[in-house]
Simulated scan of single mutants.
Amino acid sequence: MSLRILVAELICYAGFLPFVMIEDPLLVLLVAVLISMLAIGMLRYKKDFWLQLKSEFSQNMGQAFGMAIIIALSFPLIVAGNPYWLQVTNLAMLYAMMALGLNLMTGRAGLVCLGYAAFVAIGAYVVGILTLKVGVSFWLALIMAGVVASLFGIVLGLPALRVKGHYLALVTIAFGLIVQELLLNFESVTGGTNGLINIPSPQLFGFDLSTPLNLGFTSLPFQANFYYVIIVLLALSVFFVNRLSHSFFGLCLNAMREDQLAAQCYGLNLTKYKLLAFAIGAFFGGIVGGVYAGMINFIAPENFGFQQSVLVLSMVIFGGLDSIPGAVFGAIILTVIPEKFRAFDDFRLMFYGIIIVSCLLFMPQGLLPFKHRIITTKPKEQEE
């Protein structure tokens, strides 16, 4: 275990906790400015140290992420008296899973999707309908949510076979609007504008996750139950996406993103890889929607509008296209920081727009840029 990585993660965690617990927006802004100035100063005068630390993180990404998960398990114990921030953290991790799915589509495969919230809506309504009206177990319904969202991803991927660039972006926007209109008009199934109310909470080994968690020495609010479930799902998602990205399949998606014609000339089946990229990316959205429905117990079409798609895209661009750590950190930062400035909630969409434009102008590679893979081949030994 790398002591340097552990210390770096503990310092970041120690800086995050006061930021969450401070309530005064002005004081929060002051703390954010001080931390930013400190980080910029250290980056300027300790370049060698940061380069070594970055290299160490890159070489031990699995170990670093594992240690981060273990550290994060203590968060509910520290903020046990503040269920609000537990809920915000739950939403941040759900957004991180959404960002991973969209990053697979847009960042790795180069398929621009501006209707990603539609997949989340599909997953949420599959879980809501199956658990509320059919009586199916939440966990079975959750798997079905991912599968159904994947099927809709393939449906969306079919037009993607014929268009690309901004035309594809328009197709995905239209897809999101179509899904939202269907949810509004099929009132007998979806509840229309009223949505679905009183969706059953999930149960795990007979324990209802909507009840407080009693640990003996302390009692945690029910949000802690979902926190631990979501952090496990996030860890599995990161593991799966990381393995997928470093496989031959991930390399094919990169080739398709860089130059579709060249990839096709090398024998890649673009039809198969485009449909798989949409299906796998949509699966994460379906799972997130299902967990959200079980956690909130209420869903409505307006929860999954175009604004949510723009939000997830902002997280991906801010973190770094095709960067797995970037997608996770981008989602967490752009979920937590706006919650500290809820007085300006009406300007939230403008805030995300400014972030996208600023990143494209001044930080085009994002907060944690993707490290390009270097493929080398060893020459065959000459036969004697």
Rank of each mutant, 00 (worst) to 15 (best):
M144C: 15
Y125L: 10
Q180T: 04
G176C: 12
G123K: 01
I122S: 07
A149C: 11
V163C: 04
I178N: 02
V147C: 08
V147W: 04
Q180L: 11
H166S: 14
Y167T: 05
T106A: 14
V126P: 05
L111F: 06
F152R: 01
A149M: 06
A117T: 01
P159R: 03
L177M: 14
L170Y: 03
V148M: 09
A174D: 12
T106W: 15
L140C: 05
V112W: 03
L161H: 04
T131H: 06
A118Q: 04
R162Y: 15
G157K: 01
Q180A: 09
E181G: 05
A141F: 00
I122F: 03
I143G: 13
V112P: 00
T106S: 12
A141S: 15
L156N: 13
V126N: 03
G128N: 13
G153I: 00
T131Q: 08
W139C: 05
L177W: 12
F138I: 05
L130T: 13
V147S: 06
K164H: 13
L114V: 11
A141V: 03
A141G: 11
L142G: 11
G107D: 09
S137T: 05
E181S: 11
L142C: 06
I178A: 14
A117G: 09
A145L: 08
T172C: 03
V179N: 03
L156C: 12
G110I: 02
E181T: 05
A169S: 10
P159T: 09
F138V: 07
T131P: 07
G123N: 09
L114Q: 00
V136G: 00
T172N: 07
F175H: 07
L177E: 15
L114I: 04
A141L: 03
L177D: 13
L177P: 04
G115D: 02
A141E: 10
I143R: 10
Y125S: 04
L156P: 08
I143F: 14
L158M: 15
P159L: 03
A145G: 13
V147Y: 05
A160E: 12
W139I: 05
A118K: 06
A117C: 03
G123C: 11
H166A: 12
C113A: 07
G153M: 06
A124S: 14
L132G: 11
V136F: 11
G110Q: 08
L151S: 01
V127T: 13
A109T: 07
F152G: 06
F152T: 05
K164G: 02
L161S: 13
V148I: 15
V134K: 10
L142D: 14
V126C: 14
K133S: 13
G110N: 02
V136R: 01
I143C: 13
F119I: 04
F175M: 12
G157N: 06
F138C: 02
I143A: 15
L111T: 00
A174M: 15
K164P: 02
K164N: 14
S137V: 01
A124I: 02
G146N: 07
E181Y: 09
A118I: 06
G107M: 12
V127Y: 06
A124H: 03
P159I: 00
F119G: 00
P159N: 12
Y125H: 08
K164Y: 07
V126I: 14
F152P: 01
G176T: 13
L151K: 02
K133C: 02
A160H: 05
L142P: 07
V136P: 09
S137R: 13
K133I: 00
V163N: 09
T131V: 07
L161N: 08
A160G: 06
G123Q: 10
A160R: 07
Y167D: 12
Y125K: 08
